[in-house]
Nucleic acid binder design. Structure first.
Lengths: 292, 292
DNA sequence: GTTCCGCATGAATCGATAG
DNA sequence: ACTATCGATTCATGCGGAA
């Protein structure tokens, strides 16, 4: 909890991951312009997580967010990408419009709204209401500064079809279905399982379960999500930024993929948890070796 | 092609399906207010289908659409629902904002934007672009006049979960996966397969393949889609409206579910095809019996 | 080592109740 | 009237413990 850096510095080979506690719209001013290749973030949703964050009223959400967008625009490279995970909540029986307003405000500020990916959450929150089903999807908004941006489509190709053609390994029904869902989603870590399978490009719908084993953070999004976007929109050594780093999933994915990364969170305790998770010690020249 | 009715009349028991050729914003004036329980429609997309429809420029889409919305608002019952299938196209590398603007305009006109369902198209159109993946989803916007509306949630419950708990029947891998996908989608026709399974409410993400054998219509959406919404938001005998009826999928689903229905399309040839598909003869008291 | 079962746990939402 | 808090509802997932 001690020794929080007062400002952020650019990562380097010796210290590829930097973590800072504070307000991203202020801390980012220390970064040079056009220094970040990719921003992947999931800001606090409106009126959610009140206990840990301030809690932003839906009607004030756009006004609250745009200063962050402004600094992100400044530090983002011209061929860089900004991925924003967000979903409007239901207010008085209606979906609130602040996300729509946010997209329009971003365009007025000069951003291009390139694409909207759908994150289909297979294990969404349960519940039953007289006028509504469970909400099982969120938006992943892609913004860019230019029409041409860096995109590495081959890095996210996924195997197709073979789960149904008899070459499937002899698994339990549960594992077979899980295997199938992994294939459908386009996510999976064990590349060796994919040898000999035909690869295809994914679509703009991503199937992923939310993270259950929450690492002392109320809203971790699964590491496979930033992993996918980091592979798609950056190369090794590129700098990735998450201005609302939370539990550090984006940083962990960036670290595993050998990208440099900066994580910022208003909550100093979360920053400390992230440093532990990533084994980052900002006081040293290089990451601390695992203790055991 | 002869004998097009000049106006639409309310369906009745003898003639539960009515089809009219013309501009829905004009023809609907013949209907009494608060007479329709559910509207399910997929209007021409912006700048698409220019050969068959007029082709609406994205920048003028909201202005073009709102007169239809106005008449729909008039004829819709106060506890009725309006389901609008739409998706913005990419223009100059960006997603166009006319759908967002449309939602805001609908709210200004007094509609409640109750929910946004996602239609995940499993077999979306193939293709590859340097800066974009295949678009495999569309919006299904739900609008209402009041916070309280008719909703029959039990009518769309689907079996769940059992693939994971060991009670699964001893099926081949392919059948198991197919079974699972049917469960996920919440759609399925063979009710007998569901006996003894636990039912659960679906979510707001619908998994459906697009219709392949398009019936001489450039953008048929699958009949299972209107089928689902008709079961969810109407009861037997209720009146369903599709002001952009196209190939008649909404009418066919309504007919099969014993709802009354009105279909309107600007294209008289499509109306004739619909009458053939549904075996509707507006000149008689009752539907014509199949010829063979 | 596997497989199976039970259980806690969520970026939720509505309606009622209380201030 | 308007806002804040609480209880009830519900299900996919991952974990631990047991067979």
């Amino acid at each position: 909890m001690s020794g929080e850096p007062a400002a952020i510095a650019l990562p380097d080979a010796a210290q590829p991951i930097r973590i800072a506690a504070g307000d991203a719209s202020e801390l980012l001013r220390a970064l040079p312009p056009e220094s970040v290749q990719l921003v992947v973030t999931s800001p606090p949703y409106a009126d959610q997580r009140r206990s840990t964050y301030g809690g932003i009223h839906p009607d004030e959400y756009v006004e609250w967010f745009m200063p962050f967008a402004g600094e992100i625009q400044r530090v983002l490279r011209s061929d860089g990408t900004f991925i924003l995970n967000i979903k409007e909540k239901a207010v008085k029986g209606e979906r609130h419009t602040y996300v729509l307003e946010l997209i329009l405000a971003m365009r007025r500020a000069g951003w291009l709204w390139t694409e909207e990916f759908i994150w289909h959450k297979k294990n969404c929150y349960p519940g039953k209401w007289p006028n509504r089903f469970r909400d099982s999807w969120e938006r992943l908004l892609q913004f860019n500064k230019q029409r041409k941006f860096a995109m590495y489509q081959d890095a996210v190709m996924a195997p197709v079809g073979d789960w149904a053609d008899g070459r499937l390994r002899n698994l339990s029904a549960t594992d077979q279905v899980r295997d199938e869902s992994r294939v459908q989603s386009g996510f999976g870590k064990n590349i060796s399982n994919w040898v000999g399978r035909k690869l295809a490009y994914p679509t703009n719908v991503l199937h992923m379960a939310t993270e259950c084993g929450n690492r002392n953070h109320s809203a971790a999004f699964p590491e496979t999500l930033p992993d996918w976007f980091i592979r798609l929109f950056s190369a090794e050594g590129d700098l990735v930024l998450d201005p609302f780093a939370g539990s550090g999933s984006t940083l962990a994915a960036a670290q595993a993929l050998r990208r440099q990364a900066i994580g910022i969170d208003i909550n100093a305790d979360y920053c400390e948890l992230m440093r532990e998770r990533l084994e980052v010690d900002e006081r040293r020249e290089s990451p601390v070796a695992p203790l055991q």
